[in-house]
Nucleic acid binder design. Sequence first.
DNA 1: CGCCCTTCTTGAACGTGTTCAACTACCGAC
DNA 2: GTCGGTAGTTGAACACGTTCAAGAAGGGCG
Lengths: 232, 232
Amino acid sequence: MTEQPAQTTTAGDPATARGEQTRQLIRDTAMRLFRERGYAQTTMRAIAQEAGVAVGNAYYYFGSKDHLIQEFYAQSQVEHRAAAQPVLDREEAFGPRLAGVLHAGIDVLTPSHGFAATFFKTAAEPTSPLSPFSAESSGPRQAAIDLFGEVLTGSTATVDAELRPQLPELLWLAYMGVILYWVHDRSPGQTKTRQLIDGAVPLVDRLVTLSRLRVLRPVTRQVLDLIRTLRH
Amino acid sequence: MTEQPAQTTTAGDPATARGEQTRQLIRDTAMRLFRERGYAQTTMRAIAQEAGVAVGNAYYYFGSKDHLIQEFYAQSQVEHRAAAQPVLDREEAFGPRLAGVLHAGIDVLTPSHGFAATFFKTAAEPTSPLSPFSAESSGPRQAAIDLFGEVLTGSTATVDAELRPQLPELLWLAYMGVILYWVHDRSPGQTKTRQLIDGAVPLVDRLVTLSRLRVLRPVTRQVLDLIRTLRH
DNA sequence: CGCCCTTCTTGAACGTGTTCAACTACCGAC
DNA sequence: GTCGGTAGTTGAACACGTTCAAGAAGGGCG
């Protein structure tokens, strides 16, 4: 099952080199322990021991304990994409598509609610490479934004031409807001978050539709100008 | 300068007891070092040493390093209230009052942008008592919400009767959003955050005014119902 | 086979936040 | 004044994340 050795092995990239198995072993062990015990309660020593390697070995593959979180990020994004596929195949109207994709995201995260809540603290730090806004997370982030692009592309909705290119990112931002709420959601099974989605989506839907009205054109433009200004 | 000893000293309350001076000394030292070196770079040992006390003594007054942040919270809130007073005295229209109060908040925080950004990570953790949504922060939070209540009370604006009671908290929530943006704002002097305030306030103003229109009544109610549902 | 170089692995050591058993300072009661 | 109890204070000890010098494993090349 070993891959052919890459001809040009870039120096700082362990991903294609020998230790790929070890890397995955450590990652999977960490994810399991995070789920079982929570993030703070899982020590690097415990991860190393359970994986049968030395502590320093974990640091060879992952720069810090926080960097293991980024693995979780990426993995969740992939699962989200997969879970959203049926919705994108089935639904045609904008509202149901958006709601479905949002629900799919929460579906994927639900088993990890306990520890994911804890780790989002790290994600909130602006200086951290783990921030969803950081350059280091741009991969998963762009994938997520593209997912919301697909929500639009495949839908029957007609959107204001100026709003259109900004909308995927705005929807992703709204999704971040949903997650922020979800993280703080103490209701059993995070029912409230579901209500948030079901309640907010029709509003967003209406808003997007209304944005085309001539009367609201100035407001639409004003909002879009503001957003463009604020973008980094 | 010593206060009269409180007659009924509640057991778990060091605030009114002898060590009040020490408490303040540690707090002030911590705040100074946080500003000088940043949060992560300031060790508890350094705080203790600079304050001339033992490490354990700091833990007698503050449960953890994070709890020192809550002091910063409370202090900032008081300063915010003071800085907002001139605006509340001067302005009468809703828009300028809101903008002024928001700017005042950022004014107060600006000198601490470097380290405040770092510490907001801790605030984002839902399980932490430091979260602005937590019960333990309810004091400063309520004070902040009341401040936005004053923005409304003193203004000439007429607000939808059903929206009115919810509005202060919603404005506070918007303020939290501004702070979240500010924390990530890398523009020199955080100019972008100022633009966000100046750009968003007119929109909020218009939205609040429009909420009274008969045509929009259903939407207003829909939004308010959703908010009421989502409240904890 | 022997050599060299890169990749991978190790675990002791460091600095950190935090805890805690022991100690001291103070104050009211008798 | 002495006693007793609470408030305040101490610093060594602990567990954790992280670093790093040292070594092992592997593979290409003569």
